[in-house]
C-alpha cells in the first residue's frame, strides 16, 4: 500500500510515503481547505498535482505525504468530510499506474559528457528536449523510483536545475 521512499523521506520511524487521490469540486478555496487539513496537524504535502477531469466542474488532486497508517487514515477521513471533496482514496501502487514528469538541466560542456548522458537517457527512455552550449534539458517520465534512479546516475555530471511535477496516479481496471 505504501512504499518507503529510499528511506529518505521516511524521517520518522514507521513513516511511509502515501499517495492520496481525490476528486474535488473545481472552485476557489478548495485547495486552501485541503491544505488546511494538512497544515493544522503540522503535516507536509510532499507533492501535489491538480488538474481537470473529463467531468466538467470536477478536478483530480493527487497528494503525496509521509505518515503512518493511523495518521493517514485520519487524514483521509478529515479530507472526505470536506463538503467540496467528492471522493478520497489512498492509492495502492501495485494496482495503479503512478507517474511523474521531471525536467532536469544537466551540465554537459563537452562531447564526452553529452554522449554519456544521451546513453543514459536512452536506457531510461528519457527525451532530450533542449541542447545548449554547456547544458541540456532532459524530460523523463516514470514513477518516482525510476526518476530517482535516473537522477542518481546523472548527478556526477552536475545538475543545474531540477523540476518535478509531483505524482499523479490512475487505478488499473
Amino acid at each position: 500500500m505504501a512504499t518507503e521512499r529510499n528511506g529518505k523521506e521516511a524521517n520518522q520511524i514507521g513513516h511511509k510515503l502515501y499517495i492520496i487521490s481525490m476528486l474535488v469540486e473545481d472552485r476557489f478555496g478548495v485547495l486552501q481547505r485541503i491544505a488546511g487539513v494538512f497544515s493544522r496537524r503540522g503535516f507536509n504535502m510532499d507533492t501535489i498535482t491538480v488538474g481537470k477531469t473529463h467531468t466538467p466542474g470536477v478536478s483530480r488532486m493527487t497528494i503525496t505525504t509521509t505518515g503512518n497508517e493511523k495518521i493517514v487514515e485520519q487524514m483521509v477521513k478529515q479530507l472526505s468530510k470536506l463538503v467540496e471533496t467528492l471522493k478520497v482514496s489512498v492509492v495502492n501502487e501495485t494496482e495503479s499506474v503512478v507517474r511523474e514528469i521531471a525536467l532536469v538541466k544537466v551540465h554537459s560542456p563537452d562531447f564526452v559528457s553529452r554522449s554519456e548522458i544521451l546513453n543514459y537517457a536512452g536506457i531510461f527512455r528519457a527525451k532530450i528536449v533542449n541542447v545548449g552550449k554547456s547544458s541540456m534539458i532532459i524530460e523523463i517520465t516514470g514513477d518516482y523510483e525510476k526518476i530517482d534512479a535516473f537522477l542518481d546516475l546523472i548527478k556526477p555530471f552536475g545538475i543545474k536545475e531540477l523540476v518535478r511535477t509531483g505524482l499523479t496516479a490512475m487505478m488499473r481496471e
Partner: peptide
C-alpha cells in the same frame, strides 16, 4: 474572512 473562518467552520462561502 473567507480564509479566516475556513478552519473553524463546517463549511463557508464567499
Amino acid at each position: 474572512l473567507f480564509g479566516i473562518m475556513m478552519p473553524i467552520t463546517k463549511h463557508n462561502f464567499k
